[in-house]
Design a protein around this nucleic acid. Structure first.
Lengths: 184, 184
DNA sequence: TCTCAATCGTTCGGCACCGAATGATATCGT
DNA sequence: ACGATATCATTCGGTGCCGAACGATTGAGA
């Protein structure tokens, strides 16, 4: 539990202190700078770690894994919904689903009522693969956050959800924010 | 400041509840799952926001901006150090520095003492550009974390630094962790 | 001095990823 | 019924980005 933080100096990385020193004169929001940079660095570090330790052995990219996982959790999805859920552009999704389809991990079905649409679903093999890979993935996730205790992990998630919701706002990001707890 | 969190249910997104429900039987670390996924989602949301609102107008990609910023803060750097600092593979850096050099934003100089090495530095135009763009970038960063108060922002950074340090460990991620506050 | 190994940056092949343009299909107005 | 419009997914051109292979340069040892 955080009681006093005094993050004025104490817990700063050397690199962060250097940044502060270099930008001393300017009227900047250092805390925001550090927060954003730390979010990005953490994401990159996690992704690299997962790809190296878990995904590469299964021949899966981060994106491919995400698609499989989403389909596993949500069941069959139309392309636009799948793209949205995976945080990918539609065009990107088409290509990656193509790759997965080529490997026999997912299947595409044109809808009968509306032949513009396509429903994507796991194949049996895809289901086996994600069911096999995900527990290992999750165990690596667990290790990655093992430096935090349970409260801290939950708190981290909460703060990040807030940031994501704000960044996802379609507006120019100036208005005062509405209800904040469950943006999805 | 977090006092009670009870993130058992209360603050969960619908999607997160769905995941929990779908994976009910399995022996998984849900908190870690959510934390990792929230880190990644936040990073993506922030990056997209920045590219759209700030960087695209300057004709800069996230990676290009990062390179310029790092050189701005640290001064001239050799390629390997620059890659390391930007979190990019050496090969990636070569290409991106090439792009920036083509636009006249950075310069490459082979070292006199050791002709294998190359020092990269901002050009005058590059310096002008980053000095112009960064304040706007920072102001967008500020807005992105505006949903959090000062303590929360600092705390978020601290937690993320911990996660990054763990994920960056070169080991297989099993040993007990050494000193934890400033992984630098 | 002449290899041999180490250490640079670069090149190369390949996938991920985006955004705009495209093509196919459905729907609405008349 | 039929053309205009909207709505899908896909295609296409271009970068970002990685990892392995490569070429150039340096330093160490015989």
């Amino acid at each position: 539990m955080p009681t006093q933080l005094n993050n004025d100096d104490g817990a700063l990385l050397q690199a962060e202190a250097d940044i502060r020193a270099r930008l001393e004169g300017l009227d900047l929001d250092f805390a925001a700078l550090l927060a954003v940079s730390n979010v990005y660095r953490a994401a990159t570090a996690i992704r690299n770690r997962m790809e190296r330790d878990v995904l590469s052995a299964a021949g899966l990219s981060w994106g491919g894994f995400t698609i499989l996982f989403v389909l596993w959790i949500w069941g069959p999805l139309e392309a636009h919904a799948l793209a949205e859920e995976c945080g990918l552009a539609k065009g990107t999704l088409t290509g990656m689903v193509g790759t997965l389809e080529g490997r026999g991990l997912v299947e595409r079905v044109r809808l009968v009522g509306d032949r513009r649409r396509v429903r994507v679903d796991l194949s049996e093999e895809g289901r086996r693969l994600i069911a096999d890979v995900f527990p290992r993935f999750n165990s690596a996730e667990s290790k990655v956050v093992a430096g935090l205790d349970g409260d801290e992990i939950g708190y981290l998630s909460r703060l990040l959800r807030l940031v994501t919701a704000t960044a996802d706002e379609t507006t120019e990001l100036v208005r005062p924010r509405g209800p904040v707890d469950a943006g999805g």
